[in-house]
Each structure stands twice: as C-alpha cells, then as structure tokens.
Computed example of a mutant assay.
Amino acid sequence: MSGISVSGMDAGSGPSGAVLADRRGSLLSDIGAVFMREMWLVLRDPFSLIFSLVQPLVFLGLFGPLLGGSVTEEALGGQSPLQWFLPGVIVMICLFGTGAAGSNLLFEISLGSYERVLATPLRRSAILVGRALKELAPLVVQAALIVVVSIPFGFKLYPLHVVAGLLLLGVFGIGMGAFSYALAIAARKREWMFWAVQQSLLFPLLILSGMMLPLENGPRWMQVIGAFNPLTYIVNAERTLFSGSFTDPAIGWAVLAAVLTCAAGLWVGVQQVRRSTS
C-alpha cells in the first residue's frame, strides 16, 4: 500500500544523487545515505504519499462496521473490537507496502538508475536495508493516523506498547522488503513473474495469519498451516501489544520470527544483488 513509484533520477545528479556520490563510510552511514535518497524521491511525489495515508482510513471505515458481528467485546474481555482489528490493519499495511517494494526497483532497473546506484561504493546490504526502511517510513505515519482516528470510537491507546509494536514490524518489514527486492532482481527480465509470485504468496500469508478473521474459527488444516506462517506470530504479538501487555509469550515468538525473517531476507537479497552484478 505504501509502495510509491520513483522517478529515474540519476544516482550522480540532483540532491538525492549527491547523497550517494563519492562516499565510503560505515554501514549505518551507508544505510542513512540510501534512506535519504529514497525519501527524497518519495517527497517529490506528494500525491502518492497523501493517497497512501488515506487508503488505510478508507479500509478501516469499510470494515469497521462489520466488526461487531465477528468479534464481540465479551470475547475480548470487554475491550473494543478495534483493539483486535486495528493491529491487523497495520500489519496488512506493512505487508503490502514491503511486499510490493520490488516494483519500485523494477522501475529503476528499467530506467537504468539502479545500475548507477550499484556503481557507488555503498555496501550491498546498506542498499537493501535503506530501501526497506524507506518503505516503512510511511507506515509510522499511517499507523499514527489510524490510531488517532480510532480513539473516539473505543480504541484505547497504550503509547509505549504501540511504539514497541511498530519496532517489531520494522524488523519484520526489512526482511520482507529484502525478499521483495531479491524477487525483483531475479525477475528483472520478466516483470510479470514478479507480480505472479508476489500475489501468489502475499494473500495466503495474509489469510493464514488470522489477520482479518480469527483462525480459531477455521478448519483444523488452516490452523496447522498458520502455525508455520511467521506472520501469524507477528499478528498475535501486535494484538497483544496494542492491548497493553508486555508479558504475553506471543511477543517472544514474534521477536524470533521477525529476526529470522529479517536475517533470511537480507541474506537472500544481498546474495541476489551480488549474483546479478558478478
């Protein structure tokens, strides 16, 4: 949802290109340089940024009235159904945004600007992490916006828990973004393949995580498959955190799932970049 198309600005020209040209620093400084370049391109396209903020509000407004029939306050210990549903919306925003991140990379590859970025002395891992962080930046604004809008309708805000939930999503999102970039590089000569694989994986991950509807109400086979879905643990932890708890074991499992996803995504992404430039 938050994937925003970028222009074909050369890596060595303009304010964004100047950030990357002729520099060699630490890993963190390289990540910061890539992040600043990507954010500059986002800010040059304010319409897409505004649309990405409005979209989750529309989704929440359409699905919100249906909550009373599927998740009751009694089942949530007297809490508003929004306490259960809102974290799922935020996870979905993260999943769609980072999962489609490779589409922007495909656009840059078609224009030749990605090759100019590779010609800079930046670390390959920094390119992946910096781009993934750019995809997560709108998530923070989107999450803050829909949380504030939901408060008058019964959502109870736990600020520290929400921040912890967003940090957890950030780690998971970096891994998902890296996987998306790796897929884009692998499918750079067949763009249709990127969307075929991405859509074939994205929606099963979403449905089998219990993001929109509880898996407890589904058949046993869905519950078994859901137990092997890392997104299931992320969704459960986000709901626990947004409900004001730091002690639920679900949080520990989610941290493990997020770290493993992040590490695996970066490893696959870096290997794919090196293979494509060797």
Rank of each mutant, 00 (worst) to 15 (best):
I146G: 02
I146T: 00
I146M: 11
V147E: 11
V148H: 00
V148N: 02
V148L: 15
V149M: 11
V149P: 04
V149S: 05
V149R: 07
I151C: 09
I151D: 08
I151E: 05
F153D: 11
F153W: 15
F153R: 11
F153C: 06
F153I: 10
G154S: 05
G154K: 10
G154E: 11
F155L: 12
F155R: 04
F155W: 05
K156L: 11
K156G: 02
K156I: 14
L157P: 02
L157S: 02
L157H: 02
Y158L: 09
Y158M: 01
Y158R: 08
P159C: 01
P159E: 03
P159A: 01
P159F: 05
L160T: 04
L160K: 04
L160F: 11
L160D: 08
V162K: 00
V162L: 15
V162F: 13
V163A: 12
A164H: 02
G165D: 10
G165I: 10
L166N: 05
L166K: 06
L166Y: 07
L167D: 01
L167F: 12
L167K: 04
L168F: 07
L168Y: 04
L168D: 09
L169T: 06
L169C: 06
L169M: 15
G170I: 06
V171C: 04
F172D: 07
F172R: 03
F172K: 00
G173Q: 02
G173C: 09
G173W: 08
I174R: 01
G175A: 10
G175I: 10
G175R: 06
M176I: 10
M176L: 13
M176Q: 12
G177C: 09
G177Y: 12
G177I: 13
G177E: 04
A178L: 10
A178G: 07
A178D: 00
F179H: 13
S180V: 12
S180Q: 13
Y181T: 07
Y181L: 14
A182R: 07
A182G: 04
A182H: 04
L183I: 11
A184N: 09
A184V: 05
I185E: 12
I185G: 02
I185D: 07
I185P: 04
A186C: 05
A186I: 10
A187P: 01
R188W: 10
R188S: 15
R188T: 10
R190C: 08
E191A: 06
E191P: 06
E191S: 10
E191G: 01
E191K: 06
W192K: 11
W192C: 00
W192S: 12
M193L: 15
F194I: 15
F194N: 01
F194R: 01
W195T: 07
W195P: 01
W195V: 15
A196N: 05
A196D: 01
A196K: 07
A196T: 11
V197R: 03
V197D: 09
V197Q: 09
V197L: 11
Q198S: 14
Q198C: 11
